[in-house]
Nucleic acid binder design. Structure first.
Lengths: 205, 205
DNA sequence: CAATAAATACACACCGTGTTGTTTATTATG
DNA sequence: CATAATAAACAACACGGTGTGTATTTATTG
């Protein structure tokens, strides 16, 4: 497995592979892609691909790893104690720094984010992202926001509800062309969460 | 393409194929399955499979079609005007007949529902289901519950939020062993939606 | 029991996979 | 600067699943 992170050949190859992957996900969907597709598009030999990655899943996993790391970094940057976060982004007072930062990241990397989170994307990544949010909300840590006390429903379902809901909004935003700014999206997401969907829809309680 | 819907051979074959599919999705995930896997497991000739379905995607699509039809039927049965529904299941008063009916259906067919909605399931189906909910909530029909007026956020995002949130709760229930009854799940889901996630979590508004 | 239709057995070309051995490019050193 | 050492990129190969076609056997219906 080639490793030299400064070798120009390696850098070129990996970049070409990654770009080809993103393009192809957009075109045919992740599961329809073959390694041959990728290497043809990237204009490299198929063998070269296998020198770097085990298969297309390995490639995908490694791309996603980068994303997850970067998102964790953003969360930590805004909330060094890691985890009060997400829901706790000063519920009522703009500018919701964490949520804005996350949407800005999504915006900057919208090509790949749209690819993996889109309807032809990678289910396993969506599952991982969901688990990341679930853990953040409900996981075994002293700061988790959803505690098993004073709740009207089992906390695990609350965590699922909130986690998937947020992902759903992100997906809708990405797939409908990102017409709103990250700031606006942060406001939207926070408003729904804090007020509750029905009230946010303008219905009386 | 064999057609006689009363021919016992056809019925047996289709059932065997369907059962094999569900088992295999659970074991290896949909995309890892080969037609050969299915026919071996179903103990039929591979040629027979192609007599009934074009490929594994065709098979999957047809299974999913049944599910969608049945769910639409349940919705219509509870709300003949089709669509006030889903959210509108008498928000505060049990027993939430529509939601209970849906969970009972999911419960009865938990094998296949877990397979398609699970982490190794079929993303395209999850997308379709999401669209179904989205349309139900927001689509172009006079009864859609989310109207573009009096809202605090764009309606499309509200619809995405609620749609995916509900699916998320269903997935969590299926994947954690369905320990709660359909009635209990209906209460949980309605409570979160009506009260809003934060309040349902026991936080002050 | 005859007619019919489904299921099987077998064979074929095709394509993507993953691996192996060879060639070519980069880098480090005398 | 030249050249050996290293490692990346490439070409060729064997394997397994796919989809299709055809002849044959087995089961169902009238």
């Amino acid at each position: 497995m080639p490793g030299s992170k400064t070798d120009l050949r390696v850098i070129r190859t990996k970049e070409a592979i990654r770009d080809a992957l993103i393009e192809l996900i957009d075109e045919k969907g992740f599961e329809a892609i073959t390694v041959k597709d990728i290497t043809t598009r990237a204009k490299i030999n198929r063998g070269t691909f296998y020198a770097h990655y085990q298969d297309k899943f390995d490639l995908m996993t490694k791309c996603e790893e980068e994303i997850m790391l970067e998102m964790s970094r953003i969360v930590k940057q805004n909330f060094p104690s890691v985890i009060d976060s997400l829901e706790m982004d000063s519920p009522t007072v703009p500018p919701f720094p964490l949520t804005v930062s996350l949407f800005e990241y999504l915006n900057k990397n919208s090509d790949i984010m749209k690819a993996v989170l889109g309807p032809k994307g990678d289910l396993s990544f969506q599952t991982r992202l969901k688990e990341f949010m679930w853990e953040t909300l409900y996981g075994n840590n002293p700061n988790s926001m959803v505690k098993e006390e004073n709740f009207l429903v089992p906390a695990q379902y609350l965590a699922s509800y909130m986690g998937t809901a947020k992902i759903g909004v992100i997906q809708q935003w990405l797939n409908s062309g990102r017409k709103e700014s990250p700031q606006e999206m942060a406001r939207i997401l926070t408003t729904i969460t804090v007020n509750g969907p029905l009230f946010a829809a303008g219905l009386k309680k």
